[in-house]
Design a protein around this nucleic acid. Structure first.
Lengths: 253, 253
DNA sequence: TAGGATGCTGAACATGAGTTCAGCATCTGC
DNA sequence: GCAGATGCTGAACTCATGTTCAGCATCCTA
């Protein structure tokens, strides 16, 4: 067991303490936080900025002010570090810290702006996670989706939102529309010539409120056209459709 | 490009023929297409599937049925190949082949479905480009944005769309909402339990049409609240306060 | 104060991946 | 038929990057 003696110290139980001894991401005034925490934070930041694959262990070590070897000492491997970052972020997701992301659905307060400002690194990481197909992305979306379904149900119950034939699809569409403003933020900002993220939000918010208040179309010709076409397609595709497209019930007008 | 001794044969004029001798992406029945075209197509496919960084030249060569050296022979370098793929895609963008992506804004026909089916590889590449910050992504978004602005203007002119105070922001919001259904497609499909992409679109489309026809809110209370708050913030920001905590407006309860 | 655990490092190691290179076949024009 | 251009390959080279390792300092404990 001579060869395994030194490495056993690392790989087998890399955590010096219990659960998460590093504490929250940006706690601790400056650089007196534990090296483990600094490494995790640096990784979160760089992973979010450039992606996991494009981030080197050496770059993380440099940003954290430690040697590359220490990264491996604490987390076993780059993958182990990634897992630790994921677990950290997932814990925050489970704690509901990113609930404001659904605010993009209908910007009624500044919660989203606050989130974008205070958790920029985490947000970048999450945005990336949503377009990878990582476990973090899956869990984040599922959580936001569940929240959105609840919000919509409550709103419909209270009568402030139009009822829906398909509340889940409704939740998904609205959630996606909200998240899109985040995913496509750089493009949108450029296209609108906005100075910064907040400036862009100030352009976007009233438009979304108008859209959700008045709709877009001045009458229902597009909906009628679509239904006609869908019915026609359903009728001509095959005589006995295995999945009836569910005739759309009349909506609240 | 600097040490132009032996590499001049490759780098400087890597194209054996003129402009784009490889022809369109999937033309040519099976494997009798030129190797250059097969390499480009394989690269497009893999770049879209895994990302540029995660795709190796060796994998591209394997998929194209050639040696890694031939990739470099034709395109000078991996970056050169990437540039060629970008240029190919950009040409298609300029030719308006992806205009149906704006269809997501308001699904009035099957153009988007057709696109998703026939150009799956290209679409994956473009989706990835939109979330990187690549030149292709920028140009694609700009093009789609310009198209969206035109569509909206025409619709408003014709009276089928509500007029807007800020048509560009309106175009951006609608474009983003449409693109979101593409960017978040895997998540949405999972959350809705849809069988496939088309199944998901059949759930999404009527909801979007309902949303754009009727709106979401049953009255304008949220818009009024937001305006009130915005006015208040505007009035109180300038005198001195650096950051107003902003009282949260009434939410959907 | 001795001894071991802990935190940490510099230097080396191994591998994966982009790239280079010398040469072989095939085709075309003379 | 010959010569050069063209298309293409296997093998080797180089470098970046993840990882290992032996050892040093510090701190806690008996």
């Amino acid at each position: 067991m001579s060869s395994a003696s030194a490495s056993a110290t690392r790989s087998d139980r890399s955590d010096p303490g219990a659960g998460d001894p590093a504490g929250p991401a940006s706690t601790g005034t400056d650089e007196d936080r534990t090296a483990r925490a600094r490494i995790r934070d640096a990784a979160l930041h760089l992973f979010g900025e450039r992606g996991v694959k494009a981030t080197t262990v050496r770059a993380i070590a440099r940003d954290a002010g430690v040697s590359p070897a220490l990264v491996v000492h604490h987390f076993g491997s780059k993958q182990g570090l990634r897992d630790a970052v994921d677990e950290y972020v997932l814990a925050e997701i489970r704690a509901g810290k990113y609930a404001a992301m659904t605010e993009g659905m209908a910007p009624t307060d500044t919660a989203y702006e606050d989130l974008a400002r205070d958790k920029a690194s985490e947000m970048a990481y999450l945005v990336r996670a949503l377009t990878d197909d990582s476990e973090v992305g899956r869990q984040l979306y599922q959580r936001l989706f569940d929240d959105a379904v609840d919000y919509l149900a409550a709103g419909m119950e209270a009568g402030v939102l139009h009822p829906s034939d398909d509340p889940e699809a409704h939740a998904a569409v609205l959630l996606n529309a909200g998240l899109a403003q985040m995913l496509l933020q750089p493009h949108t900002q450029r296209a609108l010539g906005a100075d910064d993220h907040v400036d862009m939000l100030m352009r976007i918010a009233p438009v979304m409120l108008d859209l959700y208040t008045d709709g877009l179309f001045t009458d229902d010709r597009f909906r009628v056209a679509w239904r006609t076409e869908a019915d026609h397609a359903a009728r001509t595709t095959d005589p006995d459709p295995p999945q009836t497209p569910a005739p759309h019930s009349p909506r609240v007008e």
